Simulated assay, not measured.
Amino acid sequence: MHLPVVVGVDGSEPSLRAVDRAADEATLRAVPLRIVHAYRWDRYEGTALAREIGLPSASVTPDDILVAAGRRARRHHPDLAVTLEAVAEEPEYVLLREARHASAVIVGTRGRGEVADLLLGSVSLSVATAATCPVIVIRGDDGNRAAEGRHGRVVVGVSDAPTAAVRFACEEARRRGAALDAIRAWRCPTRETADHPLFTGTPERLHEERAAEELEAALADAPADVRLRRHTVEGPARRVLLTASREADLLVVGRHRPGQYGHRLGRIAHTLLHHSACPVAVVPDTP
């Protein structure tokens, strides 16, 4: 069964840019595209519609938004199978439900508001935090066309253990014919000094070697046909990955399974979703 790529639209320019990316992603996966509009989005996203809709906000209907989104999707992919649906529910509930039967969900940074491109909106953040499939949040200002990547580079942040994020990043790099840069950030606590009795070498070298071993373990099952580049970088992971995002077409991070307090988005992923220079894929860990 070919699960569709799902994209949420509200008529804002960021959401229509998300449609561009979603159409590319669906084409790369050879799956249908499903465009969903939640009626109540504008209740807390404001009234700034994309120019492409060409109508005053007061007269726009859900069908108007969907027609504009469908037209946008077929602009570069005229043969793409596209379905449209408007649902009278809260947007995060709609998209989380859609995620159960999707290969990926694509969302914009924010909907119809005055600070549309500055920070991540509440709907996009909720979906990235709890969706059961990968969520790609559109960031950056280069058009975010997956089929026209400027850098030929996918970046994945590698944690202590192998995760679904690494597998997803390998697949994305292979689909795009891009190189995959796997990055493991490491830090040496300042309290550790060269004369510490537990260290026979410099603490920095030992921490870097440990990071390199963890990186190798995480990449043990990477496909041989992926152009894989390994990096161990000293510094806070958030800073290291934000820097890498400036020359990447996609940044991939993992999300841990729900704990006793339910779904949670780690600090690193939270920071990247708000400040990355390129689109960010949040991939939930799987058993």
Rank of each mutant, 00 (worst) to 15 (best):
A23E: 04
A30K: 12
P32C: 03
H37V: 10
D42Q: 08
R43G: 11
G46R: 00
G46T: 06
P56V: 08
S59W: 12
P62D: 00
P62F: 01
D64R: 05
L66H: 04
V67T: 15
R72D: 02
R74C: 08
A81P: 09
A81Q: 14
A81W: 03
T83Q: 07
E85K: 11
A86Y: 06
E89H: 15
E98L: 06
R100N: 13
S103Q: 08
R112T: 07
V115F: 15
A116K: 05
L118Y: 13
L120W: 00
G121R: 09
S122Y: 02
V123L: 00
V123G: 01
P134G: 06
V137S: 09
G140K: 05
N144H: 14
A164C: 07
V166T: 08
R167G: 14
F168P: 10
F168G: 03
E171F: 02
G177W: 04
D181G: 08
C188A: 10
P189K: 02
A194M: 03
T200H: 13
G201S: 15
G201H: 13
L206A: 15
E216R: 12
A224M: 00
R229W: 09
R230T: 12
R238K: 15
R238H: 12
R239H: 13
L241R: 07
G262K: 11
R264S: 13
R264D: 11
H270V: 07
S276T: 08
V283T: 11
P284D: 08
